[in-house]
Structure formats: C-alpha cells, structure tokens
Simulated scan of single mutants.
Amino acid sequence: MSFRMSLSATAFIFGTLFTGVAFAEPVTVRSCNRDVTFDKAPEHAVSNDVNLTEMMLALKLQDRMVGYTGVSGWKTLDEKLRNGIKELPELSPKYPTKEVLLGANADFYFGGWNYGMKVGGEVTPETLAPFGIKVYELTESCIFVMQKNKPTMDDMFVDLLNLGRIFRVEDRAEALVAGYRRQLGDIESKISHVDKPTRVFVYDSGEEKPFTSGRYGIPTAMIEAAGGTNIMDDVAKSWTEVSWEPVIEKNPEVIVIVDYGEVTAAQKIAFLKNNPAFKHIDAVKNDRFVVLPYVEATPGPRNIEAIATLAKAFHPEAM
C-alpha cells in the first residue's frame, strides 16, 4: 500500500513540475520586423500614450505595470482611463528617456514609432535591450521601420493577442478580440447593402497645412469598416502633413475631426466652415462633421465604438 502511495505521490509531483515548466516556457511574438522572446511575463511594464495604455487596461494588466508615459504633455486623461489606471504614476508627460524607464525598474515597454519612440532616437528596442527592457511595437507604427500592407482592424487585434501571449493571459485576449469581431460583424451586416463608400477626410490639426491620416493610419481601416473611403488613401504614410489642394479637389462628403490638444473640435470645425476656400466641399456645405477623441482615432479598444459612430454618420439610414 505504501508503494502504491509513493507511485501516486511521485506522479503528482512530476505532473505539477510539468505544468510549471509548461507555464514557464518562453513565448516568442513578432514585433514589426523582429522576433521578441519573453522567458516570463513582464512584471514592471510601462506603456506610452492613452491608446496603448488602454490596451493594457482592457487586458486587466494594471498589476503588471509600474506606470505610463506620454499623455499629459499633449492630452488629458478622460474619466474612463483615469479610473482604469487609478494610482499608476505618469512617469513622463511626453516621450520617456532611458533614465525614466530605468528609474522605474521597467522590464517591458509598450510603445510605437511616433508613439513613444523615434527612428534613431534615444529610446528604441536596440537602445533598451542592454538594460533588459523588452519592447513590443504597436503594429500600426511598423510602417516607419518596414514595408507593410495597408492596415485592417486585425492590426489592433494582433496587438491585443500578442500582449495576451506576452503576459500569459491568452484566454482573456482571445475573448476580448472575439467580442470585438462580433461587434464589427454586426456593423458590417447593417451596411452590407451600401454600394458606394462615403468619401472621408480625417482632420487632425493645422491650418496652413492639415495634418491627417494616410493609407497606413488606423483611421483608414476604421473608415473602410464603417463603409467609407479615406480620400488620402493614395498618401503612403500613416499620419502626415498634406496641402489643402487635394482635400478640396477630392471633395470629402464627411470630415472626421480628431479631438485633442489646445485647439478644440469646435474651433477646428469653425475654421473649416468660415474659410471661403472650403465653402464648396460637400462636408462643409452639408455640415457633416464627426468628432472622434484621440483615443478613438488611434489604435486601441475604443476603435470599435468609433467605427459604429462613423457608420452611423456615413450611412444613417442603415444604422
């Protein structure tokens, strides 16, 4: 009897050890043009910008974070995000330095190109690697370091699923993405009869020259999912400055206003409506403006709500 008990105990111990080893197995994810391996889930993570921080919150990773960066220097936290991060400190109002991340004992940085990192800048995957800080790059931003296809909403889903793998919360990430896919499917079914997509211009900022989203920005994917087309789809950039001439020439039916910073959405709309150069643009003539907060117009969990808002503005008869 004791021999049988010993066998059972041995089997239990080996089973437990095997489970522990399986859980601790390294995880490798693709980040832009790099493979990044994580021997264990990060414990001192930092995210940059409101949208990337919301991805972390959507996966309930606050307890793995030591702070965030890149918000108050340009934007403000709305109530939803403020409640989510609670006591987490903002480590830097704009892009972090290496010293900021080292001072926080960070072991993981979730940023992107022009979302907390600049090509050739102080904070990059290469500059942080010697300090043991692993970097995962926002997929939308990969166009700055590699060739990639035009974005779809899968770009945001890939980021959530990769974060789920990195932090060993795959089930949580898969459930979240499945819910988003269902919501998108509902929107697509409602606008499936639409024959001609709505012409759309994204107005971020700028008066002499507008700052907008081109082919590789996530608004292109959002607009297309909502039954529209980005009139700047022929501009091979993610976010960039253009001239007003092609905007006037392409005559958008709807203008999406990105709301953040010192210039309010109302002021941006007033500028467009009061400038004689724009009086023949259909969107201006028909007062068809849609306001999206910055956190909805950049890759993140609120994109799905924003797509529903856009679809209702583009095709109100269907929604």
Rank of each mutant, 00 (worst) to 15 (best):
V177S: 13
A41D: 06
L128S: 03
D287F: 01
G206W: 13
N251F: 10
I13S: 14
S189Q: 15
R4T: 06
D204L: 10
E208M: 14
D233H: 14
T127G: 09
E317W: 03
Y260H: 09
S92N: 11
L176Y: 12
N149T: 10
D78V: 02
V27E: 07
A11Y: 04
T309E: 08
L161Y: 07
A308R: 14
A277E: 15
E207I: 15
G164S: 09
G214S: 14
K118I: 12
T28D: 05
A266D: 14
Y216T: 03
Y294L: 14
A175N: 14
K190S: 14
I166R: 00
V194Y: 11
V177E: 15
N83E: 07
V27P: 05
T16S: 06
K148C: 07
A313W: 01
H44D: 08
V263L: 11
D287K: 07
L138R: 00
Y260T: 07
L102Q: 13
L292V: 05
T10V: 14
F314P: 11
F131P: 03
L292R: 00
D159W: 01
D39E: 13
I166F: 00
A11F: 07
R182H: 14
F12Y: 13
A175C: 05
M65E: 07
V100Y: 01
G73R: 07
K312T: 11
V290C: 15
G20Y: 10
L272D: 04
V158E: 15
E208R: 14
T124L: 08
V71Y: 03
A11H: 08
A58V: 01
I248A: 05
G185Y: 07
E296F: 10
R34Y: 06
A41C: 12
E208K: 13
L272R: 02
G132Q: 02
R30Y: 08
P96I: 04
L160E: 06
P301V: 12
R34S: 13
G84D: 05
S189E: 15
D35N: 12
K268A: 06
F278M: 02
P96E: 06
H280L: 11
L81K: 00
L176Q: 06
I281V: 13
V194K: 09
W244M: 06
I231V: 13
K209Y: 11
I166P: 00
V119R: 06
D287G: 03
A318H: 12
E170Q: 15
G217D: 08
K273Y: 00
E126M: 00
K75V: 00
V71H: 03
A266P: 01
G228H: 02
K150L: 06
K80T: 08
Y216I: 09
W74H: 05
E241N: 06
V263T: 14
Q62M: 03
N149F: 04
A221Y: 01
V145N: 07
F38A: 01
P316F: 10
E305H: 12
V119Q: 03
G103D: 05
A41W: 04
G121Y: 02
T220G: 05
T229K: 15
N83V: 02
R302Y: 13
V202R: 12
T298Y: 09
R4D: 08
V291I: 15
T139R: 02
A41Q: 11
L61F: 13
E90D: 10
T309Y: 05
E224D: 11
K196M: 11
P151I: 02
